[in-house]
Nucleic acid binder design. Sequence first.
DNA 1: CTGTTAGCGCATTCAG
DNA 2: CTGAATGCGCTAACAG
Lengths: 343, 343
Amino acid sequence: MAGSSTRRRPTQADVARAAGVSQTVVSSVLNGSSHVSIADATRERVLAAADDLGYVMDGAARSLRTGKSLQVAILIPDITNPFYPAFERGIQDIADDRGYDLVAYNTDGLRPKELRTLRSVQRARVDGVIATPFQLTVADFAPLLHQGVPVVVFGELTREHVTPVLDSIYVDDYAAAGELVAYRIDRGYRPIGMVAGSGDVLRREGRVRAYRRFLIERGLPQEAMLARGGDPTEAGGYAAMRELLARAPLPRGVFAANDMMALGALVAIREAGLRVPDDIALAGFDDITVARLANPPLTTVAQFPERLGRRAAEMLFERLDGTVLGEGRRVEMPYELIVRASA
Amino acid sequence: MAGSSTRRRPTQADVARAAGVSQTVVSSVLNGSSHVSIADATRERVLAAADDLGYVMDGAARSLRTGKSLQVAILIPDITNPFYPAFERGIQDIADDRGYDLVAYNTDGLRPKELRTLRSVQRARVDGVIATPFQLTVADFAPLLHQGVPVVVFGELTREHVTPVLDSIYVDDYAAAGELVAYRIDRGYRPIGMVAGSGDVLRREGRVRAYRRFLIERGLPQEAMLARGGDPTEAGGYAAMRELLARAPLPRGVFAANDMMALGALVAIREAGLRVPDDIALAGFDDITVARLANPPLTTVAQFPERLGRRAAEMLFERLDGTVLGEGRRVEMPYELIVRASA
DNA sequence: CTGTTAGCGCATTCAG
DNA sequence: CTGAATGCGCTAACAG
């Protein structure tokens, strides 16, 4: 009647005993590697014993000994933001293939949380990190880097005097937003507006900068039509759009910093009795799944987050494998203008 | 010109040396706990030295020694499914408060992957697991449980003869779907349809069962109006709805197994030149953010995934703390019918 | 080809 | 109140 008593998990020593060999032999056959060759008969016996006892490697012990944890960390602001699940999924798939686990951290884009996370990451002894830093700078990654933990950053980094070996992957938001505004939002010399998040988010500032440049080129007054809702969410978009609608003159086109905000803006516009795109052209950014399902379907910019995640993970593993050495790489990934009915 | 040479990370021994004390003392002050009291002056000195060297605890070593990894695992089918990010986020927030990291696994609801994941979880030596099993049964969790790793399952489990100590948390899909169909989809003795996933997903079968029961009660023919698209995604919903539309007679109401499928169905209905809800009443399940933003806004069932995640995490930590002992608990969480314009 | 040995960083006896 | 010694499970020399 042993019942639910906690059973100590089997170790290599247990397997060795069961197979009548030494623990070293067990380690060798389990790792396959090593320069030692093992007799086939012995190997079979060990494997059988391991399987029999339900042996599973103790990651902590292995990690302590080898310095490799077989875990990679991902830092994102908020998994609830529809852009990131696909990004995470892309990473996860690659990591999975390589036998790596994924430790996930949400930072909310807040610096204190980002810093705490960085320490957790060190504590966990992960082998590599993929980060979407919002407030962090390159310098903050220095400790990790110095300890030999490769880091891949998603987004454009503020260059600093010393550039550590740090890979980054990014999409040219500035160019994409510029195209979008010029070709889809602009309707001659009419006011166009933008709804954006609170603006402390480096990664997305390219979007706002592109909008500003457009205004300058057209000689349009700046700031007048820029509404910064608090959160980069649907609620934020709704609030910001209502603010825009309350001002005069009414914008004839609106660019939202992301699709969620655009969706919120859409609701606000509809509630105001105006139509998209007839009264106001509206476009977003990200091409989240539902952008296509909105009514009208949303014109936006696709960034292929899953592919971004996969590529980021590949870059990380190239560092872990030692396939790629030396200077940090900056990889630009393509975007695509998705023209639908809203603009 | 040391540059980017890999620096060994500081250990407690290094801190001890810097502070002029023994490693034992460092361990004591860093853990705060212990029955040993340390002189204030010494404590200060140690803390200063640790901070100075940028000391961060080595989780692997601690884990090996104490058996606790300060990590919990979450098993979900697919983070890309909009229900799960909020679920994960709820867990993450609680875990964060407790100083625990979250190791995330996507299983795609496929048994082989689920099993592989279970082994990874053992290898990682996580302290606890929150799982959304699709094909796994209680027995599969036995090894983990026997090793003293608490497990909280989201969803209803098939009871087996032996019920190990395993907590579960679930929403009564069967009741919720029943209400939805009876009060919102039904329009007298007219055909009503359902679009659902491929059906090997235990957790969601309550939705289909409720639909079936309704047909039986009304004496309506079964199967005729049930279309099972492959994936429980927007694409699956679209395909399944087109299939339904191709049959005769046309359904006057359609229940989708989840919101993503409902959104896809909406597109198919619109493309067929029919209107929701005038021609066809449509309802989904989950109340993902975009359900409200659809046109027309989607009638659905809210399950509050973030709250579910938080509660699941709390249950897990009650086990980890030893606050709750003994029998596995089954906690039912509330749902809410969200009536909007689509049905 | 297989066994012995040492030590990764830490928490925890047990002595001083 | 502090220090020295031990071992968690594993891998990697090194011997045999």
